[in-house]
């Protein structure tokens, strides 16, 4: 990883010349690739998407201001926008890669999910709108902090918390039906 100082310097250089983006690409490739492959399981599509994300970042790096948002979240926001654009336009299949550990705890399930309960939970999650599902995905499947969820979705940490609790309540209610 780049130190904060080195990162600032590198970003300023990349603003003037895209070929100077190399060290930033190296530093953040895994972050972006990780975000993408949690959502796109087709190799070629994932590759195209990552390429588009970095090209977009190089094209718009001039607009990046250090005081606004940490660079990794700026990149993740681009990744998120590109993901939704591509999935929508190209009709790609969007994967939700789940991991129940944290969610089980949050919705207060006493035991590990049975197959039937898993299917029910998937059905409930599938009924959520994209925005709500994304919050569940970021918070419980990718185990990100509320602050991170907020940065990615461009909302405050507190708002991320409130929204999350609302969705959890919704899920619990649906599961009880």
């Amino acid at each position: 990883m780049l130190s904060r100082e080195a990162e600032v310097k590198q970003i300023e250089e990349a603003k003037k010349d895209p070929s100077k983006f190399g060290p930033i690409y190296e530093a953040y490739f895994h972050l972006i690739a990780g975000y993408v492959i949690n959502r796109i399981h087709d190799f070629e599509n994932a590759k195209d998407l990552i390429q588009e994300i970095f090209i977009k970042a190089m094209l718009h790096i001039n607009k990046y201001q250090h005081r606004d948002v940490p660079f990794k979240f700026w990149l993740l926001r681009i990744a998120r926008n590109e993901l939704y654009n591509h999935v929508k336009k190209k009709e790609w299949t969007r994967v939700v890669q789940y991991n129940w550990d944290l969610l089980e705890e949050e919705i207060e399930l006493e035991n590990t999910l049975t197959e039937k309960q898993t299917n029910m939970l998937i059905a409930v999650l599938n009924d959520l709108n994209d925005a709500d599902l994304e919050i569940i995905e970021l918070r419980y499947f990718e185990k990100r902090s509320f602050a991170e969820v907020g940065e990615i979705l461009q909302i405050t940490e507190n708002n991320a918390k409130v929204k999350t609790y609302r969705i959890i309540e919704k899920i619990k209610k649906e599961l009880k039906k």
Binding site: F29, H30, A33, G34, V36, I37, H41, F43, A46, K47, I50, V87, K88, E91, W92, T93, R94, V95, V96, Q97, Y98, N99, I122, L125, N126, D130, L133
Partner: peptide, 17 residues
């Protein structure tokens, strides 16, 4: 938007990409 729920990771890694 087509959604699929999966617990398995994809067959490729960030390094492959």
């Amino acid at each position: 938007m087509k959604r699929i729920f999966k617990s398995e990771k994809p067959s490729f890694s960030p390094e492959d990409l």
